[in-house]
Design a protein around this nucleic acid. Structure first.
Lengths: 114, 114
DNA sequence: CAGAATCCCGTCTGATACTG
DNA sequence: CAGTATCAGACGGGATTCTG
């Protein structure tokens, strides 16, 4: 089978900002700067792009309240919530194994790894 | 909590070539060009880089047989196999939902999409 | 066969400044 | 507040050539 479309898709949803954004939206709708704050380390531009891409793919919905100052709320669609499951598992794996990976990484500068 | 190290790690293992490589190694050890062929669309350099990174992180082990012509075999370590689980779930999600995502994407073709 | 080295381009990403 | 516009550096990733 041809893996190109799949790997392209993986490259898109596997993107770290996408994963973080979806994960953060799991416990409810969030506003732009709120998201930016809790994700941490993401630039305003990257958050905008990530949200646009997610919205375009139908994973996140964007709701604008025509108030002053403007208020925009982002939330997961049903499809987005279904993606959150496997992404959460991936995050769990990272949390459980990041220490060992980093140990391996520093070891590899001294001797060849098994 | 600080999400930076986590998102960095996610960006590394979420990389499409990494996901494809680990997935392909799931059903047994593979040689370099064999991997390259079944992954499809990956350049020699990217496969080399991906395998080096995986080896360095202790997710893949590299075994060299000093024959002529040289033969190198890559296989998953225990840690690598544990990562394969969540990655497989992600791949399954892609397979199940790629059609809907692409439908959403074309529907939203209001302005420049990639 | 399994790479290493090199060149090169497009994309990602952050920083900064500006707007409705 | 929630963006858009622009610049610039880092990085991803392909193509090609060369070696043990």
């Amino acid at each position: 089978m041809d893996c190109r479309p799949i790997s392209q898709m993986l490259g898109r949803i596997g993107d770290k900002w996408t994963i973080m954004t979806i994960t953060m939206l799991l416990d409810g709708p969030k506003r732009f700067n709120e998201l930016r704050r809790i994700i941490g380390g993401i630039s305003q531009q990257m958050l905008t792009r990530t949200l646009r891409a997610l919205e375009n793919d139908g994973l996140v919905s964007r709701k604008v309240y025509p108030t002053i100052p403007p208020q925009v709320e982002y939330s997961l669609t049903t499809l987005g919530r279904s993606l959150a499951e496997p992404l959460t598992q991936l995050t769990v794996w990272v949390l459980e194994n990041i220490a060992e990976v980093e140990r391996n990484r520093s070891k590899a500068s001294n001797r060849s790894v098994d």
